[in-house]
Simulated scan of single mutants.
Amino acid sequence: MPSRTTPAPARTTARKTVALAAFADLALILLFAGIGRDAHQRGDVITGVFQTGWPFLAGAAIAWLGLRLWRAPLRAWPAGVAVWLGAVFFGMLLRALTGQTVVLPFVIVALLSLGVFLVGYRLIVAGIRRLSARRQRG
């Protein structure tokens, strides 16, 4: 019988952390797409957001799977940077392959916005964890 190295409550917490990080990435990428669509006054709010966002979601998924980011999904490095750059790189590649617009200003906006969103929330989580750990120590 194989031995367990991680107690059941810790595994459950780890699974919840992975699920929450994945959901946060998904929500923030869709928020990026929604903000962009709103800024350009495009219709089809729900389907349009998914139409704009799917390449970036696919890029983020490629990063998650390719680099096994579930091992430490809330770390800014490498997880946050990998999701950010994967979403932008593969997102732009998929947009180009499917005939969607890929122009330099959009690439720059995507890099900046998704960087702030996908790395930023991880930095905030790390800061909260540090503060919490300091309070517990003394």
Rank of each mutant, 00 (worst) to 15 (best):
R37V: 14
H40T: 11
R42H: 15
R42P: 01
G43L: 12
V45D: 14
V45I: 15
V45M: 14
I46Q: 12
I46H: 11
T47N: 13
G48H: 10
G48D: 06
V49I: 15
V49H: 06
F50Q: 07
F50R: 10
F50S: 06
Q51V: 14
Q51M: 11
T52R: 05
W54C: 01
W54I: 06
P55V: 11
F56R: 02
L57E: 08
A58Q: 01
G59D: 02
G59W: 12
A60C: 04
W64A: 00
L67I: 07
L69S: 04
W70P: 00
R71P: 01
R71C: 01
R71D: 05
A72Y: 09
L74T: 15
L74I: 13
L74C: 09
L74F: 09
A76I: 06
A76F: 12
W77V: 14
W77M: 06
P78L: 04
P78D: 04
P78M: 07
P78T: 07
P78I: 10
A79W: 08
A79Q: 03
V81M: 10
A82K: 05
A82H: 04
V83T: 09
V83S: 01
V83C: 01
W84K: 01
L85I: 14
L85F: 07
G86L: 00
V88Q: 04
G91W: 07
R95H: 05
T98R: 05
T98E: 03
G99V: 10
G99F: 04
Q100S: 09
V103Q: 12
L104P: 03
P105T: 11
F106E: 00
F106L: 06
F106S: 03
A110C: 06
L112C: 10
G115P: 03
G115E: 07
V116Y: 09
G120C: 07
Y121L: 02
Y121H: 12
R122M: 04
